[in-house]
Nucleic acid binder design. Structure first.
Lengths: 363, 363
DNA sequence: CAGCATGACTGAAGCGCTTCAGATCCGTCC
DNA sequence: GGACGGATCTGAAGCGCTTCAGTCATGCTG
């Protein structure tokens, strides 16, 4: 705001707590208290200190030094099993992240994003150097090196959409159950010919049909569980050999391409079970591309119930999971862990089949 | 990996550099060198040190202490003028962010996300406490408090899609020019009746028609410029009184609602100029909702050329800006600033009108 | 008026690491 | 054989802040 003395050129270096203390003529501890514990000094003195700070261009205690002294960096690290683009363009992730970020921001904490790579997750070195005091892992592959890196640092962690990990807090959704309910719904409607459209089973960006082995050895728990949910129910009804297409990510375009392949199978499926709404949107499109209609010719179900699902054409039957709440829960859990509280048992958010217009009995 | 002595219960506290130094019998400086300057000690000794560290469960130098000593936190802060959800679900932002994040990660830096709020941008206190040594501001309102907060800390900054800010590096795109080219294209096609669909002019989430005053006083530079580009060209052709609808964000659903209103105007527009592709997607949908077709009844243009644009139905005529490149450039600039290099002049990435099937002469 | 609680402020010990000017040792070179 | 140089390793001075046990008045109680 104000310049100290007109000449600004040779300001020797950034002012510190000591600078301010020196100018005001108080101890460093007092200046610190002016910022962190206003009740520890008289209001008048505090005013003087703050005024001097402004005059000197002191922007408040240095966050890094503060972190070192308090042993807390007021940040939560976020690790994702996919490249960031995917993260951002996938509503399931972005809505989650928003819930997480706002929870965390309410406590004046920042979110530190660590880009994932091909191995699915941030590099261990990145994790080792990240300034955060708790980590949230979102859908990393089961064997992600980043997980070990967090453990090595001895920092608390909450895992989301991932297998149980000793010592980590956890928020989870019943992916298997949700998937089962979608498959059961379709079965009840009378469908006998299915196609399954899924996103990545492992890091690496493969696209194509999925065989039994790849399916059961998938390293993304979510994918594995949703697929299992679909297929188990179908198998129980005597339906096997269901064609499965793996898209490398949860994106409309990839879903469209996958659904195209599924619709070319013989017999042509009358119902498409998709592992996410985004994929389902692509499937809807592919059905139209093929000159067919949903739900008359082909029923389609999604998973997530992202905001667009109810506005799709036709509105999508899908399995709802409360994404924002999931983010908030994860954030709260992270904050509790920070306070040294025990995380308690895993938090389970509910899933629910939402019936809309994209499904109906086969012709 | 290994436990020190079977009994793990009473490990007094986390090991530090000193712990390792003590065990190996070398000085602290040497252990530090083992991690940061392998050439400063013999390979054999380094091995011994690393082995001991592993044995002790030492995960490497503490990032915070390291930052304090080196006066660098190896992180770049990212500030956004909207709530995070918007950020994540808007491909224009997410693709940018991906470019930014990967650049930054290449240098072992993290990305610190600072959620924006209603005032458009992170709270100043959040900025004051964020551990980053350079900030990237993306489309904040011109008067965002966060900008002043960065300045107060004396940290370098790169601004994107924002007005010139003394001392800040800058990457920009010619929003006005891009918008002009879209309007000119439509004019050339013979259109005379237009509607304009825009995202927020100011923070706060308003939705509705826009009058002249609100338009010219917009605090988001991007919005202001794109609108100005559209309207100036039209005005020069003698077309005034063009209806404008402001959506609170750049989302399909909001675009759909806005376009509905625009299509109800009299005379009904034969062309819709949208400030983003996402809004344009919504407009495409609204045209269909109204029982009309694009481009036969109504032409639609977007802005950005996000990946979905070419797959839209019909493929969208739009103004392309290289989003990922923008992110990368911003990242490189930030990194240069970190190295103390001068940022050089503003980086300007090109825009280009991409003609596709959503525009044609009016009937 | 002694005794004591209270409020306001200070001193100094860290927090865990980096870095740079040496100290040491040893093989070389002339 | 003594000076020199390179390779290794060490000591100690910070980096900027928090915090806790005090110190010192001051006002209040009985």
């Amino acid at each position: 705001m104000a310049t100290l003395c007109g000449v600004d050129t040779a300001r020797p270096r950034k002012p510190t707590l000591d600078t301010v203390a020196g100018v005001v003529g108080v101890s460093r501890a007092t200046v610190s208290n002016a910022y962190n514990r206003p009740d520890q000094l008289s209001a008048a003195l505090r005013e003087r200190i703050l005024a001097a700070a402004l005059e000197l261009g002191y922007a408040g205690p240095d966050p890094v030094a503060r972190s070192l002294a308090t042993r807390s960096s007021a940040a939560v690290g976020f690790m994702l099993g996919q490249p960031l683009t995917a993260a951002f363009s996938d509503p399931a992730v972005s809505v989650f992240l928003d819930g997480l970020a706002s929870t965390v921001d309410g406590r004046d904490h920042c979110l530190v994003l660590m880009p994932g790579n091909e191995t699915g997750g941030p590099r261990p070195e990145t994790v080792a150097r990240a300034q955060a005091d708790v980590f949230v892992a979102y859908s990393l592959p089961d064997d992600a090196p980043a997980l070990a890196a967090v453990r090595a640092r001895g920092l608390p962690m909450v895992v989301v959409d991932q297998p149980v990990l000793a010592g980590a807090a956890r928020v989870e959704v019943d992916d298997t159950g949700g998937a089962r309910s979608a498959a059961e719904h379709l079965l009840l409607l009378g469908h006998r010919h299915f196609g399954v459209l899924t996103f990545a089973l492992r890091p690496g960006g493969r696209t194509g049909p999925v065989d039994e082995r790849r399916r059961t050895e998938a390293s993304f728990r979510v994918t594995r569980d949703r697929l299992a949910g679909y297929l188990d129910v179908l198998a129980a009804a005597g339906i096997t050999g269901v064609p499965i297409w793996e898209a490398s990510g949860s994106r409309r375009e990839l879903g469209r391409a996958g659904a195209r392949w599924l619709l070319e199978q013989d017999p042509r499926p009358t119902a498409l079970l998709c592992a996410s709404d985004e994929l389902a949107f692509g499937a809807l499109r592919a059905v139209r591309d093929a000159g067919l209609t949903t739900p008359d010719d082909v029923s389609v179900t999604g998973f997530d119930d992202v905001p667009d699902a109810k506005h799709a054409d036709p509105p999508l039957t899908t399995v709802r999971q409360p994404l924002a709440e999931k983010g908030r829960r994860a954030g709260e859990l992270a904050l509790r862990l920070l306070d040294g509280e025990s995380p308690g048992g895993p938090i389970r958010v509910p899933v629910e089949l939402v019936l809309r217009a994209s499904t109906r009995p086969p012709r």
